[in-house]
Nucleic acid binder design. Structure first.
Lengths: 397, 397
DNA sequence: AATTAATAAATCAACTTTATTTATTTATTG
DNA sequence: CAATAAATAAATAAAGTTGATTTATTAATT
């Protein structure tokens, strides 16, 4: 589990890389399928039972796996299902948003053990760093000494080039400049020894869906996360693809032309900040969008037309996306109520049928399952993936 | 070199997989960089010199590698550069087009050793199969008995769902139906034992550029191939990505809205068949487009405006493409004269600067180097890649 | 003499095969 | 119905095999 590489075109593979790969493979299989006995793992992985046995005993003694209850009822010796030990690994996840930041402590199985939140009009580096430092101290203090030793890192989900869209939010240029010059990793290193993993916020949400949601059902898909702004993530070969510059799935930037031919982006139409703007125009307080993300019935009158337009644009976007990569599915999720999500998905699916899909295999559209907290969870996944699980699209390998 | 898997999320890795991987790695490094001594390979791959030595001797005795001339002039023992043996592997490549089909015999280093061509008004399965069967016999007869044993397969580059665009070409519906029902692999198996690898035609062109052109300089890029129709390919992590259904990079299907807001696709504007249509409208014979693909000066008057429109659409398309995957580069190639290609690339680059690229890192635009024969060469690459080289994006692994 | 390349021999790590132990269900029998 | 034998499956120990690394040696050159 030393992260030694296998599979970079410039890197040869050796035996420790082989073992590392097989360890990560078994952990990933257990992560994805839940507890399984060694015999099943061996069959599924095509490894000999003996190899699996040796690896499982090693992972168990490392405290990463826990024995489940004996499975009886079949002919033969009862099997011992092995599963991820929830207390085997802990990770911090920080979501950096335009109006709030959130810090969570997550365990190996994706359960949020504790969380802290801060809201602001716009984020400054000082703000965020103080929130993080204090939060790490507070959350760590709640943990047993034994558990603390199992903290494996800090994952941070942040919008791509935060400083660029900052003006939109109404932050002063000076703050924007501060962000641009900030070396986040170096700053964090002054108060924590934990390794830091920074990832695009929508890619983080995508990873959460991939790992803990319905993403595991698909080999590849494009994922759209709709929040104040809109972002996306890409899954290829059962792994999240972050992209060369960490900006794969920048689906908010997909072009679309307006009714009079002017150039627009998906982000200008399907984001929640557009809906927010409509509420403000109508003299309503948009705070309910962020404060009661389970129920928007009070503003349904404005939500309805937003859904229509967003769905139409998402349908067009889906075609563009599938022209680049032939995804089986486009998955849509966001920080909104379940009924809004359902409606949005259904209408996108319907609009899709009216699009010109010559030369393509049209994708299915479906809703994500994780919802609002996806970015935080995905952020916390970062360190865990890097150190214990398998990613077929680069990264640790 | 048994193609045993490593790296599928469902597959464990074993020692023979390890060796297979390292063999493919060294072959790929030699393919990409040209002949290199073992000492360099060991340093580059991070393998021990001994391991590299053993593998090189094995590949040499298999007839895949040949010793180069001793390299003197440096302190120390002179090194022996090892390179791919051109006669080590041979492969057939069949390009299936709407007006012509071409069969080539290619060697391990990408040199075309022989070729045959057929033209038609539209292709029928019978036509193509006869052409292929006769061609295989004829080309094989020219080879020495020793070389014949080194034939490793037949690669076929075909448009995606041939039967769908068939009507456009003016073929009868019955022919279209024949294609739809055809089991190409089974038919070929009746007259050849060689393994068959079928790939999208533009993806094949992309692979040719990737392997023998300037593609090796980039980690990832989108590739646009402009011929009678327009198609594309995708390279991620230094490997061609074919996509779940073999239809990744269907860039011709990228939507774009016309001046009056009607829906169009890139293929409707930037394809050569559009230019062909203009020539026909003007009462000119479009045959020169296909017959003298080095020189179109006789119809420059019509080519010029086509370049302008195509470049504009390609610039828009580039933005869409980079919103899905953050490619460093968009590479453009096609079956047209070098000066047309240069002009097209330059103007696309210029138009790109006028596009709305908020949230993106705009790509560079550059020309491919392989040109007209890219699809044939890429087709022939298929069997070679599958059996001897490394592909980090699935396929053989 | 110093340096580098290539490779043989010995060593080590990790996977597979074969064989053994253990626990259970299923079928048979008194 | 209870006892017992047979079959099956899981887990793992021991031995064998493969393949990479380490160490040492030889060769060729500046």
């Amino acid at each position: 589990m030393d992260g030694s590489k296998i599979r970079t075109l410039s890197g040869g593979a050796n035996q420790s890389g082989l073992r590392d790969y097989n360890e990560r493979l078994l952990l990933s299989m257990l992560q994805r399928n839940g507890p399984l006995p060694g015999s099943d793992l061996a069959r599924m992985a095509g490894l000999s039972p003996q190899t699996v046995s040796v690896i499982l005993r090693k992972l168990e003694s490392d405290g990463l796996l826990a024995r489940g209850a004996l499975m009886r009822g079949k002919v033969g010796k009862p099997s011992v299902p092995m599963g991820l030990d929830p207390d085997g690994v802990f990770s911090f996840g920080l979501k950096l948003g335009r109006r709030s930041a959130e810090l969570i402590l997550m365990d190996f199985t994706g359960v949020i053990r504790a969380q802290r939140r801060i809201t602001f009009f716009y984020p400054t580096p000082q703000n965020i760093l103080t929130f993080l430092r204090d939060g790490l101290v507070a959350l760590t203090e709640q943990m047993s000494v034994k558990d603390r030793a199992r903290l494996c890192g800090i994952g941070i989900a942040s919008p791509f080039e935060l400083w660029n869209w900052h003006q939109l939010v109404g932050a002063p240029a000076a703050t924007s400049q501060l962000w641009k010059e900030l070396d986040l990793r170096a700053e964090i290193a002054t108060f924590s020894d934990l390794p830091v993993f920074i990832v695009n916020d929508a890619t983080a949400a995508c990873r959460a869906e991939h790992v803990y949601g319905c993403g595991k059902e698909y080999r590849d898909y494009a994922y759209v996360f709709i929040a104040a702004f809109i972002g996306g993530g890409i899954v290829l070969n059962h792994s999240v693809f972050e992209g060369h510059q960490g900006n794969a799935g920048a689906l908010g930037s997909l072009p679309s032309s307006g009714p009079s031919g002017e150039s627009r982006q998906l982000i200008d139409i399907a984001s929640l900040h557009v809906l927010e703007g409509r509420l403000v125009e109508a003299g309503l307080d948009p705070a309910c969008l962020w404060q009661t993300p389970q129920d928007w019935s009070s503003v349904a009158r404005y939500v309805e037309p937003w859904i229509g337009q967003a769905a139409q644009e998402l349908a067009k976007a889906s075609i563009s996306i599938c022209a680049v990569i032939d995804f089986e599915t486009i998955m849509i999720d966001g920080a909104f109520p379940a009924d809004v999500k359902r409606e949005l998905v259904e209408r996108t699916q319907r609009y899709l049928q009216t699009q010109d899909a010559r030369g393509l295999v049209p994708p299915t559209i479906r809703a994500g399952e994780i919802g609002g907290k996806a970015r935080e969870i995905g952020a916390a996944c970062g360190p865990i993936f890097a150190q214990f699980l398998l990613n077929t699209n680069g990264g640790a390998f």
